[in-house]
Deep mutational scan, measured.
Amino acid sequence: MGFKLLSKLLVYLTASIMAIASPLAFSVDSSGEYPTVSEIPVGEVRLYQIADGVWSHIATQSFDGAVYPSNGLIVRDGDELLLIDTAWGAKNTAALLAEIEKQIGLPVTRAVSTHFHDDRVGGVDVLRAAGVATYASPSTRRLAEVEGNEIPTHSLEGLSSSGDAVRFGPVELFYPGAAHSTDNLIVYVPSASVLYGGCAIYELSRTSAGNVADADLAEWPTSIERIQQHYPEAQFVIPGHGLPGGLDLLKHTTNVVKAHTNRSVVE
């Protein structure tokens, strides 16, 4: 069995187990497998329904001669939608809004960016022009300005110390501490036991640490421990890039980060 097929099978099995364990909360999309990078042309966006009122959005972007996937989250909030992270750029984010209108038909009224990198804030200006209120932590807003990236308009308070959590509509926002970046936030959907790890969490097929220019490698494993301790009931975990899975993604990420750190020390 090929690795790609095995990865998709694991996603399907995880979703099936969740649907059985929580039949009222989960209505997993039966329309197909989780979209992969090879299936999404740059400039297009796919939506994948995880649970009743919960979707991931998947886009792709060219970077350094390669094409990478990027995940975000959409959560229903009454007759409105909360968006977590842009679709990595203005063109993708405009396509995301169009796809949401086509498939869901509810307005996106608020959006949260989970850290300051372009795959999370690139497209904020498109959201703002569409009347979406954009939010991020003060740290993310400051770092985005320093980096020359787009800056969300509103500040999220109460997320300055490791372990801080605040309720934001249908989700809980959690600051686990520094990891992929010093400002990275985690998003949890309690009604569906869905954990969105953003770039602080890796997919299972990833074996290298990737972009760690703004990471705190020493603190990252401790931050992941905080996530595990705060959300032990999480059933569906979405990484910032690639295929979702279960809580095993947290341990896998820790292993990859520690291996990278150990290699760096040896070198």
Rank of each mutant, 00 (worst) to 15 (best):
E150C: 00
E267D: 13
L106V: 12
F26R: 05
A19G: 08
F26I: 07
S56C: 08
S223T: 11
T140L: 04
M1D: 12
L73A: 04
N92I: 10
A59M: 11
V75I: 15
G246V: 07
S191F: 11
L204R: 13
K4T: 06
E267V: 07
R120C: 15
S22I: 13
A51K: 05
L156K: 14
E267A: 09
K91G: 12
D183Q: 03
E145F: 09
L81C: 06
T60I: 15
G105M: 01
A59V: 06
Q61F: 04
V212S: 12
S22W: 14
S139G: 08
Y188A: 09
Q235S: 07
N149C: 03
L243K: 04
T253F: 05
I238G: 13
N211S: 08
L195I: 15
S22C: 11
V132S: 03
D118H: 08
V75W: 02
L96C: 12
P170C: 13
D183S: 03
V237F: 14
G163W: 10
G169Y: 09
I84P: 00
L9E: 09
V124W: 01
P170R: 11
V28K: 06
H252S: 08
Y231N: 13
K8E: 07
L9S: 12
S7D: 13
F63L: 06
R141G: 13
D29W: 06
G105H: 02
D119L: 00
A59I: 08
L13N: 08
S7K: 06
S161V: 13
K251S: 02
R110Q: 08
A94H: 14
I84R: 00
S160A: 09
I58S: 07
H230W: 12
L9W: 04
A136F: 13
T140V: 13
T182Y: 02
L156F: 10
K91L: 10
E44N: 03
Y68L: 03
S137A: 11
G43C: 13
P190V: 14
E145Q: 03
L185V: 11
G240W: 04
P190Y: 15
A213R: 12
H117A: 00
E203G: 10
Y34T: 09
V67Q: 03
S139V: 08
E225T: 03
A66V: 05
Y175Q: 04
T93N: 14
S113T: 13
L249P: 05
I74H: 00
H260D: 05
Y68T: 05
G43N: 04
S31P: 07
Y231S: 10
E99K: 02
H180T: 01
V121E: 01
E39F: 01
A111G: 07
P190D: 15
K102F: 15
D119N: 05
G210V: 05
P221R: 12
D52S: 04
L247S: 03
M18R: 06
S193D: 14
G198I: 00
P35N: 14
L249W: 05
A15G: 07
T134K: 01
L243T: 13
Y68D: 05
D64T: 08
T261A: 06
L185R: 01
L10F: 13
F116I: 00
W220L: 10
G131H: 09
G197M: 03
S62E: 10
L159V: 06
Y196I: 11
L96A: 08
N262C: 11
R167P: 07
G197K: 03
D214K: 06
V124R: 13
T134N: 14
P152D: 10
V266F: 12
I227H: 03
L82P: 00
G240R: 03
T153S: 15
A90F: 15
L249C: 13
V189C: 12
V11F: 02
P239G: 12
R167V: 04
T207F: 12
T153M: 00
V67D: 11
L249I: 01
I100D: 00
F236V: 09
V189Y: 14
H241Q: 01
Y188V: 12
L143C: 11
